[in-house]
Design a binder for these strands. Structure first.
Lengths: 191, 191
DNA sequence: GGCTTTGTACTGACCGGTCAGTACAAATCT
DNA sequence: AGATTTGTACTGACCGGTCAGTACAAAGCC
């Protein structure tokens, strides 16, 4: 088997297992078994459990960030923001275990990878921040908006809502959920 | 020493240690030492490490929910919502490690423990949902607002923003962060 | 064509350390 | 006097990480 194919199988296995039980509770033996691979192969492809995890995080977040960038590209400011939110929602719908892993593990305290994990997550948030900045520059959002905090808020809001949606009412159409999020974003709360 | 006094000391010790090193990295021996208690005492008072942590989670969420209920009590609808958000933010500022524990444990996908953790979290979200319902009833929010989704969104938004705040710019005043959150909530994004 | 060599990917038994949990007799509350 | 705590010693399962060895295809060699 090719190296990259093996790596991807390990990624997929690790994402599932970590989403279920957490990083600390997931053993390297489990990951290897789920991927249909010997334990040594994990250490041949990645130097350590931590390295595997950080590569996995990197891989997943890069895909999320790319999805967001694609959604934003070439759209006018406010529409771009909404497209990004819709894209984040869709991504989570398709990669639910990864989303669980992301929300659960980026806020764990402890290890060295912790800081790195947070920086990786920033890449996704940064796309939202960019969209917000553009909107501010175009004058469609308040000039004194705290872009960093707002981006973090939008990201977290979408992530939480998406996971609640998947867990509690998965049969509900995406568009429904997206509409509620848009209303919140646009300040359509007030009658 | 009385049984409950010992329990409280163990509790305090466990919280401190989680603040320093995280949940997974904290050993029972450490907890006992920090509490100035023999290891056997931990197992006399709690049957296992898991039981100790589950009691901790229960204890913490109940305090968070109580804090939110206090903040909401006797306030007019919109002000109540704002007070709840401020209270959640302040609570997380003061109990950061607990907030991390909460966010990490409620989003797993398997097992009974996860379901229980989820139900516990609901208690806090429910307070926000109540405030939103009151506001809808009072006519200050849209009649057709999806209260459950909105409550989840607000809770997740505040949690994410609060942890980002603590991690990236802890010296920033709470009021600053709270103001941005309230602007988002009230739709004051647009100039 | 047959042969050796080389590089890459993978295997799985094994090791050493860690840590939850146990045991229990003696001390100390209340 | 019964409930609670102490102190210490111990067990054994588990787990991250290692390493000598296998498989095998492509490349060089005669």
């Amino acid at each position: 088997m090719t190296r990259s194919a093996t790596r991807e199988r390990l990624f997929a296995a690790a994402i599932e297992l970590i989403a279920e039980s957490g990083l600390a509770a997931t053993t390297v033996d489990q990951i290897a078994a789920r991927a249909g691979v010997a334990k040594g192969t994990v250490y041949y492809n990645f130097g350590s459990k931590a390295e595997l995890f950080s590569a996995l995080l990197e891989f997943g977040v890069e895909r999320l960030a790319a999805t967001l960038r694609d959604a934003v590209a070439g759209r006018p400011p406010l529409e771009a923001l909404e497209a990004a939110v819709a894209a984040e929602l869709a991504f989570i719908g398709e990669h639910e275990p990864f989303a669980r892993l992301l929300i659960a593990e980026t806020w764990r305290s402890g290890g060295d990878w912790q800081r790195a994990a947070r920086l990786i997550r920033e890449r996704a948030v940064e796309v939202l921040a960019g969209a917000l900045r553009d909107a501010v520059a175009a004058g469609v959002l308040r000039r004194d908006l705290d872009v960093a905090t707002a981006a973090s808020a939008v990201f977290g809001m979408v992530l939480t809502v998406a996971l609640d949606w998947r867990a509690l009412q998965p049969e509900r159409p995406v568009d429904d959920v997206r509409a509620t999020l848009m209303d919140l974003l646009r300040g359509r709360l007030v009658p």
